[in-house]
Design a protein around this nucleic acid. Structure first.
Length: 557
DNA sequence: GCCGTTTTCGGCCCGACTGTTTTCAGTCG
C-alpha cells in the first residue's frame, strides 16, 4: 500500500466512526493521522522497514499497529470489522455536498438506502423530504451533487494524473522494454482536468512492453490490447492508454498524439498531404512550416498558430524562472512545519524569498492569527532575517475579505507587513453583484497587494462563486492589483483563460503554492503549467522578478 | 486515540451558514 492508500483507509475509518457517532476526538485522531501520512515525504513502507512508524506525528501505539497491519496485509482487522457494520456505499454518499454523516445515517436507518443510485432514485421520488429535518432542498442537493460526481468521475485533476503518469514512464524506461517513453495527450498539454493518461512508447519488442505493463504495481486492469496499444485502468480509477511505436516513428507520433484535436486540424490544413516530412524534432517540424516552435501548453487553437507564423509567440514562463513563493502557511496557523523549515525548503527550491502569509483572525478553524500573534510572528521573522544571507523572509498575511468587502485586519496592522493577500473564505453563495462588489472593495483597498484564489473553485468539487469577471479585472487593472494563480492542482485559480485576459489588460500575476507544508512548495509546478497555458511570460509574473523589483512594484501601486 | 514548558489524565481549533425549523441540528471550512 502506498502512503496515499493508507491515508485513505484511515480517513474511511474516521468516516465510519463518524457515522457510528463515536467519540469526536477519536475521529479527529484518525483524520490527523491520515493527514500526517498523506503529507509524508518518505515512503511508509521504508519507514516501516526501519521500525519508525511510531515516530510519525499523530501516530500513537494503537494507530501504529493498525498501520503496520495495513502495510503487511493490505488491510486491517479493525477496518474490516467497521466495514461490516457500515455499508461501503454510505461512504460514497458523503461525497455529496451538503450531505454529512448524520444525514447519511438517518437515510440509511429510515429508508435502508446504502448506495448512491438508490439515493438518487429516492430523491427523484420525493421520498427524502418526509424524513425529519430533511426537505425539498436536500433532495435538490442530492440530484445536483450526483451530477457533479458524475462529471468528476469522468475527469481527474492533473495533480493526480501527472505524478502517476510520470511514475509509469519511469517504470517503463527502467523495464528496458522501451527505448523512449513520453507522456502525451492532454497531460502533456497540461490541462487542469484530464480524462486519461496517454503514454507513447518506442520499442523494438511490443511483447516486452506488454509484459512490462502487466507487471506495473498500480495496474488495476487491462481493458483492450492490440499489438500496438494497451488500454486499461490504473489506481484511483484512472484510465490509461499506452501507444507502442517503432523507435523511428516516436517523435512524429508523439506530436500527432499530443493534440489538441483543434490544433492538429489546423496544422494538417497547413501541411496538406505531405505530413510525414522531416521529423528529427518537433522544433524542426514547426520550422518546416516556417513558424516558431509551439510548446504543448499552447496547442489549443487559441491563436497560437497565427502567432507562431508571425513570430509573435510569448516567451513562456518556466519553473526555473520562479524566484520566490508569496503565499505559504506555517505552524503558526494551519501549516505543518515551522517557518525555519519552510525557509529551508524554499532555499532547496532555489528561491531567494518566501512570504509567510497565515490566515487572519476570522478563520479560527485554520488557526487564524489575531493582531498579537501576527505581531509576535513578525518579530520572529525579523530575527530570522538577521541570520539569513541572500534570502529574505517576507512578513505577510492572507487576510480574509469579509462579507461586506472590508478586511479582517485594520489598515495600521496591514501597514507593518511586506505583502498582503486578500482572500475570500466564507459566504460563497452571495449573489453575483454583491460578491463582485465585495471583492472590488478589497481591490480598492490600498493595503491589499494580491487577490488570492479569485474564483474560489475547487476542481471536481465546487464551482467558483458567481462573479462579474470583467468588472473585477477592470478594477484590478485600475488599482494595479496582482492576481494570484493558486498553484494547488485542486484550485488552479485564476484559470488559464482569466490569466490570458489579465495579461492582455497588463494585470500582473503571482504564482503561489499556498503551501501548508514543505512538500507543498513543489506544487508550484502546476501553477507554472497553468500560467503557460495562459500565455504568461516572466514579465507578467511578479515572483519571477528580483525581490527589489517586486517590492518596488507593490509599493508604487 | 493522541499528547504533554498544563506531562499519564484530561484536554483536544470554532463560528457562520443552510435548511429546516419556529429555536436549532447539521454541514462546512
Amino acid at each position: 500500500m502506498t502512503n496515499r492508500d493508507v491515508a485513505r483507509m484511515l480517513d474511511r475509518i474516521a468516516d465510519m466512526l463518524q457515522i457510528k457517532d463515536e467519540n469526536p476526538f477519536k475521529i479527529r485522531a484518525y483524520r490527523k493521522a491520515a493527514d500526517s501520512i498523506y503529507h509524508l515525504d518518505e515512503d511508509l513502507a521504508y519507514i516501516h522497514k526501519n521500525g519508525r512508524i511510531g515516530d510519525i506525528p499523530a501516530i500513537g501505539k494503537a494507530l501504529q499497529s493498525k498501520i503496520e497491519e495495513m502495510l503487511e496485509k493490505g488491510s486491517c482487522e479493525y477496518y474490516e470489522r467497521l466495514a461490516h457494520e457500515v455499508p461501503e456505499g454510505l461512504l460514497d454518499m458523503l461525497a455529496l455536498p451538503g450531505i454529512g454523516h448524520k444525514t447519511v445515517k438517518l437515510i440509511y436507518n429510515e429508508l435502508g438506502i446504502d448506495n448512491l443510485p438508490d439515493l438518487l432514485k429516492a430523491a427523484r421520488e420525493k421520498r427524502i423530504r418526509v424524513l425529519p429535518g430533511l426537505g425539498a432542498k436536500t433532495e435538490y442537493n442530492i440530484k445536483k451533487g450526483m451530477e457533479m460526481l458524475q462529471e468528476a468521475s469522468a475527469k481527474s485533476t492533473l495533480g493526480l494524473a501527472l505524478p502517476l503518469a510520470e511514475e509509469l514512464c519511469d517504470y517503463l524506461l527502467k523495464s528496458e522494454a522501451a527505448e523512449q517513453v513520453a507522456i502525451t495527450g492532454s497531460i502533456r498539454r497540461g490541462k487542469a482536468l484530464v480524462s486519461d493518461i496517454d503514454i507513447m512508447v518506442a520499442s523494438r519488442s511490443f511483447e516486452a512492453v506488454h509484459r512490462a505493463v502487466c507487471g506495473y504495481r498500480r495496474l488495476e486492469e487491462t481493458e483492450s490490447q492490440g499489438i500496438d496499444h494497451i488500454k486499461g485502468r490504473l489506481a484511483y480509477n484512472l484510465s490509461f492508454e499506452i501507444i507502442i511505436v517503432p523507435p523511428a516513428e516516436f517523435l512524429s507520433q508523439l506530436f500527432w498524439s499530443t493534440g489538441s484535436k483543434e490544433h492538429i486540424e489546423q496544422i494538417r490544413k497547413l501541411k496538406g498531404e505531405e505530413r510525414k516530412g522531416d521529423f528529427t524534432s518537433e522544433e524542426a517540424f514547426y520550422a518546416s512550416m516556417d513558424m516558431q516552435y509551439i510548446p504543448p501548453e499552447l496547442r489549443e487553437n487559441r491563436g497560437e498558430i497565427e502567432a507562431a507564423l508571425k513570430g509573435e509567440l510569448p516567451n513562456l514562463i518556466e519553473l526555473s524562472d520562479i524566484k520566490g513563493d508569496l503565499h505559504t502557511h506555517s505552524r503558526w496557523s494551519d501549516g505543518a512545519h515551522d517557518i525555519e523549515d519552510m525557509v529551508q525548503a524554499a532555499k532547496d527550491s532555489g528561491y531567494s524569498y518566501l512570504a509567510i502569509t497565515e490566515h487572519s483572525r476570522s478563520l479560527p478553524i485554520s488557526g487564524g492569527l489575531n493582531e498579537e500573534r501576527l505581531h509576535a510572528q513578525g518579530k520572529v521573522i525579523d530575527a530570522l532575517n538577521l541570520n539569513l544571507d541572500e534570502f529574505r523572509v517576507l512578513k505577510g498575511s492572507e487576510v480574509d475579505i469579509l462579507k461586506d468587502g472590508s478586511l479582517d485586519f485594520d489598515d495600521d496592522i496591514l501597514e507593518e507587513l511586506d505583502i498582503v493577500i486578500g482572500s475570500v473564505h466564507s459566504n460563497f453563495k452571495l449573489e453575483r453583484d454583491k460578491q463582485s462588489e465585495r471583492i472590488i472593495q478589497a481591490i480598492k483597498n490600498e493595503k491589499v497587494d494580491i487577490i488570492g484564489h479569485l474564483s474560489g473553485r475547487l476542481l471536481n468539487r465546487r464551482p467558483g462563486y458567481e462573479l462579474d469577471r470583467e468588472r473585477i479585472l477592470e478594477a484590478a487593472a485600475r488599482n494595479k492589483k496582482i492576481l494570484e494563480i493558486n498553484a494547488h492542482p485542486d484550485r488552479l485559480d485564476i484559470d488559464e483563460e482569466t490569466a490570458k485576459i489579465a495579461k492582455d489588460m497588463d494585470i500582473k500575476v503571482a504564482i503561489n503554492s499556498d503551501a501548508h507544508s514543505q512538500q507543498d512548495l513543489k506544487l508550484m509546478k502546476y501553477g507554472v503549467i497553468n500560467a503557460r497555458r495562459g500565455w504568461l511570460e516572466p514579465a507578467d509574473v511578479v515572483n519571477s522578478w528580483e525581490l527589489a523589483d517586486l517590492l518596488n512594484y507593490i509599493q508604487n501601486k
